[in-house]
Amino acid sequence: MENMQDKRAGRVVIPQTEHPLVEIGNVTKKVRRRTLLKDVSFNVEQGEICGLLGPNGAGKTTLIRVMTGLIRPDSGDVFIGGSSVVRQRENAAAHIGAIVESPIFFPYMTGRDNLENLALLHPNLPDRKARRKRVNEVLEIVRMDKRADEKVKTYSLGMKQRLGIAQALLGDPELLILDEPANGLDPMGIRELRELILRLKHEFGKTVLVSSHLLDELQKICDRIVVIREGERVFAGSREEMIGRHAGLEEAFVEMMTT
């Protein structure tokens, strides 16, 4: 879906649609006898930043793997842009850009080579000129254009995270799924990441689903929060609803985890 640029405000106007961009319906996933996800359901609307919260082992990465089609749910389904991830994975994948777990690249290539290689896998970038242009655009968005021609194995974790976001943006997807993008970043890196995510929402009209343990950061950027505990969704609502009577997201989260 095309996003329209509001020239007066310099921001993207998100067209109102009948259906949410992401619909997660009753997803259950078991591995051997262990239930990793149990009947998880929630929606993410177009243009939102949605925080996915939960303690270690709660099922966040499993849910992200299901959303990106890396694993199949035992029951339930995920619809992205109206396409089922289970039955129409390639259609659904065209709407998604993602970092799943840590940002791992082909280490024998430079940052630019990695992006140009992956750009070949997008139907909306059919010719070389379009691919080069898009690679330069995404490198500029994440401010990696000056280090793009160095081998990935020389990059710091922060640079790898930014390159991870660049590869996620390659196909100009409506939805970005970022799994623990702040892992290993120093305070400056975390701040830059926060600003980048907000820019992606406001300037480029992206919908972002971000999982993180950094509750302060999520409080600053998220419109909606989903909390998962032991594979079950225990909360889905606006940031304000989550915080409620508490002093902040952290207090609300701790209470939710301990009761």
């Binding site: 080579d113 070949l120 896998l121 139907p123 059919p126 196909g171």
Partner: peptide
Amino acid sequence: MNKGSGVGMGNLIRSEAQRVFKRKR
């Protein structure tokens, strides 16, 4: 941006060939 109908075999082959031939091994 137009999402297109699918990635052509030519691009899939180019992408894989780049990965294979960029490995020193």
